[in-house]
């Protein structure tokens, strides 16, 4: 992976801010959808699409590409926004989210949008699919990596752990899991709904290599992806601690914002806040 220079890091931070603004604009236009998760994962999706992944937006089926599986499909606005900025489709199309005839389905559909590696939404099945891809690529001796973005909440599902065991059994060292550890799910805080901690211990005891990071620190995430590539005998998982609703003060860390969009007034307030942050990043006042 190429080195992440300071100038590029600042560009990526600005890009993440822009994507957060797009997420707000998409959700208010759609009138339904999920707010907290997409905002919380903006830094990681920018890092993936603009630094980590090998991919070619002009040739979404390029065989040499890395595969990115989004398991918790409901945070797709962040993926759509990152893909549009990367050049997969016009940014203006983001406004069609969830509308009749759109390529941007409410939960992502592989056949609707080139570059969308798989269909997802029902939680807990993404890691299985990513592991299947990783195993098939290994069988063929292909060098591609598979990344699987997951939520913490979907670790309630037994299938996730079936896949965790499976990936360890087949030593899928070409697979990197990314867990959005934001501690919320639709009914409340994860530790109230169904305690997940200690996730790190759990994964380690299932024979995965675990890296814990601040999910809003792009450099930490990029470094973690690079480390994951050096692990030989195991799959690796990056537990990314994030703040749900990151960048919009009144949404941050509130599970009530898991599954609803902002109304017009809330969207205007959110955009004002994000533009202020944008100015601060441009002026170099924020790391």
């Amino acid at each position: 992976m190429e080195e992440l220079h300071e100038t590029k890091l600042k560009q990526l931070e600005l890009k993440a801010n822009q994507i957060r603004q797009d997420i707000i604009a998409m959700l208010v236009e759609a009138g339904s959808g999920h707010s907290a998760g997409p905002l919380g994962m903006a830094d990681i999706f920018v890092a993936l699409y603009f630094h980590v992944l090998k991919h070619d937006p002009r040739h979404p089926e390029w065989p040499g590409r890395d595969r990115l599986v989004l398991s918790n499909g409901h945070i797709c606005p962040v993926r759509y926004a990152a893909m549009a900025h990367a050049g997969y489709f016009p940014i203006s199309e983001l406004k069609t989210l969830r509308k009749l005839g759109t390529r941007l389905q409410g939960h992502p559909h592989r056949l609707a949008l080139p570059g969308m590696e798989t269909t997802s939404g029902p939680l807990g099945s993404g890691l299985s699919q990513a592991a299947g891809m990783a195993l098939a690529l290994k069988m063929d001796g292909a060098p591609n990596r598979v990344y699987c973005a997951m939520s913490d909440g979907e670790h309630d599902a037994g299938q996730t752990w079936e896949a965790v065991m499976f990936a360890a059994k087949y030593k899928l060292n070409n697979l990197t899991g990314i867990i959005d550890r934001n501690n919320i799910q639709i009914d409340g805080y994860t530790e109230d709904i169904m305690p997940l901690d200690d996730l790190k211990d759990k994964y380690e005891s299932f024979n995965w290599h675990v890296i814990e990071i601040n999910g809003h620190n792009i450099r930490e995430f990029v470094d973690a992806c690079a480390t994951a590539q050096t692990i030989f005998e195991k799959p690796a998982v990056i537990i990314a601690h994030t703040i749900p609703g990151k960048g919009v003060d009144f949404m941050e860390s509130k599970f009530e914002w898991h599954g609803k969009p902002p109304n017009k007034e809330e969207a205007a307030a959110a955009l004002r806040e994000l533009r202020t942050l944008q100015g601060q990043i441009e002026a170099g006042h924020i790391d």
Binding site: R67, V69, R110, E117, T118, S125, S128, Q129, A130, A131, G132, M133, A134, L135, A136, L137, M139, D140, G158, Q159, E162, A163, M165, F166, Y170
Partner: peptide, 28 residues
């Protein structure tokens, strides 16, 4: 043997692993 995959008692994982393998070119 190199094209046989044993998943244990895990039919849900099996269905989705197969989906992933097919998306990477296999006929599971």
């Amino acid at each position: 043997p190199e094209r046989f995959v044993e998943l244990g008692v895990a039919e849900q994982n099996m269905a989705s692993v197969a989906a992933g393998m097919s998306l990477a070119g296999k006929i599971p």
